[in-house]
């Protein structure tokens, strides 16, 4: 009996962690290039709203997914322009992006709140593998977007650590002046990877509104974009660790729903609000762990994270 509960929890963790997964891997790309983008929450919200609206109006969820990715990319382009070209403060620009994304998605999405049903991305049990005990339901009986997430993890890892462009990406984030000397176009790469981050955040938003909780409500991400940013630090800018963290968070987000049926919480329903705190408290704890590790191993953020690159000035 407990086994069934645990398997269900892990399965729903993998499902609902997928949105955070896309967003945090996207943010890893942006931050690896040296640009902090705190606009993830706003980009996810715009992605979720766009995906739902387009899927509803065209009847095609795949078009919705594509549109969400596009919207995320465009918003990220704005952030790149403000921070890379104008060299404005990355923190403030990112915050502004979150405000704009939340506000714009609320305004444009207002008519969509009434709609209960839009075409969803299909769920597809993988033949044979889905019948495996335990692993089958946890990993192989999911929405297509979840499988796309599975593919993204090793692909991102391989790209960052094992390819030439990945090396250039890391160089730009660690020591842009040296990368510049090598003939790497620091500005172009930063633009590109910030946009990759926006693309993936948009997809993460679409995963929410087309698969995980298939509808549109104002502010439906409820902080998942911020959790994704926090996870990047915990994961020490490594996509594989980010994936572990994302799925764990997915499970913790689901936990309140499962625990609410315990007699203790049925008797005192208000105690459920403490359960709702769990994902956020957990983010804080995870950050503390991540920061301790970073201090101990002296392996922290990309060295040039948050610093605009200016050619004529000295230093990274």
């Amino acid at each position: 009996m407990e086994w069934v509960l645990l398997v269900n929890l892990l399965a729903s963790g993998v499902r609902s962690g997928t949105a955070i997964l896309f967003a945090s891997i996207g943010e890893i790309f942006a931050e690896r290039s040296g640009v902090l983008n705190l606009g993830v929450e706003g980009m996810m919200l715009m992605g979720a709203m766009t995906a739902f609206g387009v899927a509803h109006n065209t009847g095609n969820p795949w078009l919705g997914l594509l549109a969400a990715a596009g919207v995320g990319t465009v918003l990220a382009l704005l952030h790149a322009f403000v921070t890379v070209t104008l060299r404005a403060d990355q923190v403030v620009s990112g915050l502004a992006l979150t405000f704009v994304g939340s506000g714009l998605s609320a305004v444009l999405g207002a008519p969509l709140v009434e709609i209960r049903q839009a075409p969803r991305l299909p769920t597809y049990p993988i033949p044979l593998l889905a019948d495996l005990p335990v692993l089958g339901p946890i990993l192989f009986n999911h929405n297509v977007i979840v499988y796309l997430g599975f593919l993204l993890i090793p692909a991102a890892w391989f790209y960052i650590y094992r390819t030439r462009p990945g090396l250039e990406l890391r160089a730009v984030g660690e020591y842009p002046a040296a990368a510049d000397v090598q003939g790497i176009n620091v500005f172009a790469l930063r633009y590109a990877y910030v946009m990759v981050g926006g693309f993936l955040a948009g997809v993460g938003g679409a995963a929410l509104s087309l698969a995980i909780t298939p509808l549109w409500i104002e502010g439906m991400t409820s902080g998942q974009g911020w959790i994704a940013v926090g996870l990047v630090i915990f994961a020490r800018w490594n996509p594989v660790q980010a994936a572990v963290g994302s799925y764990l968070f997915g499970a913790i987000r689901r936990l309140p729903l499962d625990l609410q049926t315990l007699p203790l919480f049925l008797r005192n329903p208000a105690w459920g609000y403490f359960l709702n705190m769990l994902p956020y408290l957990f983010t804080v704890i995870v950050l503390v762990i991540g920061s301790r590790e970073a201090m101990r191993r002296r392996a922290g953020a990309p060295a040039a994270l948050g610093l605009p690159y200016v050619r004529e000035e000295r230093g990274a």
């Binding site: 322009f81 404005a88 502004a96 939340s102 506000g103 714009l104 207002a110």
Partner: peptide, 23 residues
């Protein structure tokens, strides 16, 4: 109406200010 316009304008103001300041 629609709600959210105030929040949207706040975000736009912040964006314009942070980038305009640099310009």
């Amino acid at each position: 109406q629609p709600a959210g316009i105030a929040q949207l304008l706040q975000g736009v103001i912040l964006f314009v200010v942070v980038s305009g300041d640099m310009i």
